[in-house]
Deep mutational scan, measured.
Amino acid sequence: LELTLRVGDKTWHFKDVDEEFVRHLEELLKRGAHEREIEEIIREWLR
């Protein structure tokens, strides 16, 4: 999967994204996660 995600003024483009990561992001967005929380999840995933 490829994913382009825009949060606030930042845009990330990922290739070979894990479906579990996408589901986790979807859940965060559904519950109205704040920009900082989403950025933290992305940084963790990139490690």
Score class of each variant (00 low, 15 high):
His24Val: 11
Lys10Ala: 05
Glu26Leu: 14
Leu3Ala: 05
Leu3Ile: 15
Leu28Gln: 08
Glu27Leu: 09
Thr4Ser: 07
Lys15Arg: 10
Ala33Glu: 06
Trp12Pro: 00
Leu28Tyr: 06
Ala33Asn: 07
Arg6Cys: 07
Phe14Cys: 02
Glu37Val: 09
Glu26Ile: 14
Leu1Met: 11
Trp45Ala: 06
Lys10Glu: 06
Gly32Arg: 03
Trp12Ile: 03
Asp18Phe: 03
Asp18Cys: 03
Glu27Met: 12
Val17His: 07
Arg31Gly: 13
Glu26Thr: 12
Val7Met: 06
Arg47Thr: 13
Leu1Lys: 12
Ala33Leu: 09
Glu20Ser: 13
Glu37Lys: 07
Ala33Gly: 07
His13Ser: 04
Leu1Ile: 09
Lys30Leu: 11
Ile38Phe: 09
Asp16Gln: 13
Phe14Thr: 00
Val7Ala: 02
Arg23Phe: 09
Thr4Ala: 08
Glu39Leu: 07
Leu5Asn: 00
Arg36Glu: 14
Ile42Gly: 00
Ala33Pro: 04
Ala33Trp: 12
Glu39Thr: 11
Asp9Pro: 02
Leu25Ser: 01
Gly32Met: 04
Trp45Lys: 11
Trp45Arg: 10
Asp16Glu: 11
Val22Tyr: 07
His34Arg: 11
Trp12Phe: 12
Leu5Val: 15
Trp45Val: 05
Arg47Ala: 14
His13Phe: 11
Thr4Lys: 15
Ile38Lys: 01
Ile38Trp: 03
Leu28Arg: 08
Arg36Gln: 13
Glu35Thr: 13
Glu44Leu: 07
Thr11Arg: 02
His24Phe: 12
Arg31Asp: 10
Val22His: 03
Glu26Lys: 14
Lys30Ser: 10
Phe21Asp: 03
Thr11Leu: 12
Glu40Leu: 10
Trp12Gly: 00
Leu46Phe: 11
Leu5Arg: 00
Glu39Asn: 12
Lys30Gly: 09
Lys10Phe: 10
Val22Trp: 03
Phe14Arg: 00
Ile41Gly: 03
Asp9His: 04
Leu3Tyr: 07
Asp9Lys: 05
Val22Asn: 01
Arg47Leu: 10
Glu40Lys: 13
Arg31Thr: 10
Asp16Lys: 09
Phe21Glu: 02
Glu40Phe: 09
Glu27Asn: 13
Asp16Trp: 14
Glu27Cys: 05
Glu19Asn: 07
Ile41Leu: 11
Val22Lys: 03
Asp9Glu: 09
Glu27Pro: 02
Trp12Asp: 00
Leu25Ala: 03
Glu20Phe: 08
Arg31Gln: 14
Glu20Gly: 15
Lys15Ser: 11
Trp45Gly: 05
Val17Thr: 15
Arg36Asp: 14
Trp12Glu: 00
Thr11Ser: 05
Lys30His: 10
Asp18Val: 02
Phe14Asn: 00
Glu44Ser: 08
Val22Gln: 02
Trp12Tyr: 15
Leu29Lys: 04
Asp9Gly: 07
Ala33Ser: 08
Val22Phe: 05
Glu19Tyr: 15
Phe21Cys: 02
Arg31Phe: 08
Arg43Cys: 07
Leu46Lys: 04
Arg23Gln: 08
Lys10Met: 09
Glu37Ala: 08
Ile41Asn: 06
Val7Lys: 01
Leu3Phe: 06
Leu5Ala: 01
Leu25Tyr: 02
Arg36Met: 14
Trp45His: 15
Val7Asp: 01
His24Tyr: 14
Glu2Tyr: 07
Glu20Thr: 12
Asp9Thr: 05
Ile41Ser: 08
Phe21His: 03
Leu3Gln: 03
Glu40Trp: 08
Lys15Gly: 04
Val17Ser: 15
Glu2His: 13
Val7Thr: 03
Glu20Ala: 14
His13Met: 04
His13Pro: 01
Lys10Gly: 02
Glu19Gly: 12
Ile38Gln: 02
Asp18Ala: 08
Asp9Arg: 03
Glu27Tyr: 10
Ile42Leu: 05
Arg23Met: 09
Leu5Pro: 00
Glu2Arg: 06
Glu39Ile: 07
Gly32Asp: 05
Glu20Arg: 09
Glu26Pro: 01
Leu25Ile: 10
His13Tyr: 15
Glu40Pro: 03
Thr4Leu: 13
Arg36Ala: 14
Asp18Arg: 03
Leu3Val: 14
Leu25Gly: 00
Gly32Ile: 04
Arg6Val: 15
Arg43Gly: 10
Gly8Ser: 01
Phe14Met: 04
Leu5Tyr: 02
Asp9Ser: 05
Lys30Asp: 08
Ala33Lys: 08
Glu2Ala: 04
Gly32Ser: 06
Glu40Asn: 13
His34Glu: 12
Glu2Met: 05
Ile41Arg: 08
Arg6Pro: 02
Gly8Asp: 01
Asp18Lys: 06
Leu5Thr: 01
His13Glu: 04
Lys15Asn: 09
Trp45Phe: 14
Glu35Ala: 09
Asp18Ile: 01
Thr4Met: 11
Gly8Met: 02
Ile42Met: 03
Glu39Gly: 04
Glu35Ile: 13
Arg43Met: 15
Phe14Val: 03
Leu46His: 11
Phe14Gly: 00
Gly8Glu: 01
Glu44Ile: 08
Gly8Gln: 01
Glu20Gln: 13
Asp9Leu: 03
Gly8Trp: 01
Glu40Arg: 12
Glu37Asn: 06
Ala33Asp: 05
Thr4His: 15
Leu5Cys: 05
Trp12Ala: 00
Gly32His: 07
Glu40Thr: 11
Val22Glu: 01
Ile41His: 10
Trp12Thr: 00
Glu2Lys: 05
Arg47Gly: 13
Glu2Gly: 09
Gly32Thr: 04
Glu37Trp: 07
Arg36Leu: 13
Leu46Arg: 04
Lys15Phe: 10
Lys10Asn: 08
Glu40Ile: 09
Glu19Leu: 14
Gly32Asn: 07
Glu40His: 12
Ala33Cys: 10
Ile42Val: 06
Asp16Val: 10
Leu3Cys: 03
Leu46Glu: 10
Arg36Ser: 15
Leu5Met: 06
Leu28Pro: 01
Glu40Gln: 11
Leu1Cys: 12
Glu35Arg: 05
Ile38Thr: 02
His13Gln: 04
Val17Met: 04
Gly32Trp: 03
His34Thr: 14
Leu1Gly: 15
Arg31Glu: 09
Phe21Gln: 04
His24Arg: 10
Glu27Val: 09
Glu27Trp: 08
Val17Pro: 05
Arg23Val: 07
Phe21Gly: 02
Val22Ala: 03
Leu46Ser: 05
Arg31Tyr: 10
Thr11Asn: 04
Asp9Trp: 01
Leu29Met: 15
Phe21Thr: 04
Gly32Gln: 05
Arg6Met: 13
His34Asn: 15
Arg36Thr: 13
Thr4Val: 15
Phe21Met: 04
His34Lys: 14
Phe21Ser: 04
Leu29Asp: 02
Arg43Phe: 13
Phe21Lys: 03
Val17Glu: 15
Glu40Cys: 08
His24Thr: 12
Glu44Cys: 06
Asp16Pro: 10
Arg23Thr: 07
Ile42Lys: 00
Trp45Glu: 04
